[in-house]
């Protein structure tokens, strides 16, 4: 059972990522591509727990009203330098008021954890660094200028 970081703690996790956008998995417990979800909603729900991930060129707008159906939505980072997912996180939280688990998957790196969490991500399937050591990166800064999910007021309204 792989470990992930959730709410800044290391914990066990049962979800697995299913990247095939054409074939259905045989059981529940998968995080599936948006396209697979869109064309097989009922079949996927019938399998049990299902979550969806957004590729880096898929805006949360494409999920629309379905957002409310999920307890977990993931955003894929094909390369850590591809920063679209940071905007998707904020959009999900701020414009779609998504309250469930928001997970980063893919090639993002430890040194992005602080920014990702400020953009609304609260779970991280970190693949490329030591997960224990990485927890320190959430504490890179104790104060920021901009508003975020956990601090709605920008610094200038609190000075």
């Amino acid at each position: 059972m792989p470990n992930i970081i959730k709410d800044q703690q290391i914990c066990d996790d049962n979800w697995q990522v299913w990247r095939d956008a054409e074939t259905l998995p045989e059981t529940g417990g998968y995080i599936v591509p948006l396209a697979l979800w869109q064309s097989n909603k009922d079949a996927l729900k019938a399998l049990g727990d299902v979550a969806v991930f957004l590729a880096s060129d898929e805006s949360p707008k494409a999920l629309g009203a379905d957002i409310a159906e999920f307890e977990l939505i993931a955003v894929d980072f094909p390369k850590f330098a591809d920063g679209r997912g940071f905007s998707y996180g904020r959009e999900l939280r701020e414009q779609f008021a998504y309250k469930g688990e928001l997970r980063a998957i893919g090639d993002f790196m430890r040194d992005q954890l602080y920014f990702l969490s400020r953009c609304g991500f609260n779970s991280f399937a970190l693949e490329n660094s030591d997960i224990e050591e990485s927890l320190a990166s959430f504490k890179d800064f104790s104060e920021s200028y901009q508003p975020s999910i956990d601090q709605r007021l920008p610094l200038f309204r609190r000075r």
Partner: peptide
């Protein structure tokens, strides 16, 4: 100040 460590726009 707004642009310094803006969490959303560090990987444009």
């Amino acid at each position: 100040q707004w642009s310094t460590f803006h969490p959303e726009f560090a990987f444009l």
